[in-house]
Amino acid sequence: MTAMQIVFLITAVVTLFAAFRTVTTPNLIHAALWLILALAGVAVFYALLNANFFAVIQVVVYIGAIAILMVFAIMLTRREMRDRGKQTSGRWWWAAILGAVFFAGVTWMIEAVALPSQPTAAVPASSIADLGKALVNPNGYVIPFEVASVLLLAALIGAVFVAWTRHNS
């Protein structure tokens, strides 16, 4: 086993455990923190894949913004949300079966596609500049790029409308 594989395995175990604790811990703040650990694990995966930009963005957006948004949302709730009761619903095994089926399906798909075991092309040195060029290239992703902006604008308007208008009246 190479050092990379060991790092990968450790990260995988930590990420999965954190994800598991996210859904099983009764304390909502703890759940949010476990989720943050799981998200950090994903960032490590990106780093292992040499996807520097995505590793950093994963941390900036998911841990720096989304996780904090969640913590704020939790603190907005009243005490009732701090659930001390049973953490599983009566039909948890349905979810377990569905999860297992989904996992099997994904595994089968990955096996069936027969991905090349070695990279087919060398990783370009400045992939970020290429990404930037592709984003604004008329033959590339310029439409999704601008649509993303409009989408975010719509998201913000929607959020302000829902959260703020009701609050004011």
Binding site: A65, I128, D130, G132, L135, V136, L152
Partner: peptide, 19 residues
């Protein structure tokens, strides 16, 4: 929430600035 929107937009702008 507003911060989140800005954060995601910035994620798009950085590659553009590099290129």
């Amino acid at each position: 929430l507003v911060f989140l929107v800005f954060d995601i937009e910035v994620a798009f702008l950085y590659p553009w600035a590099v290129a």
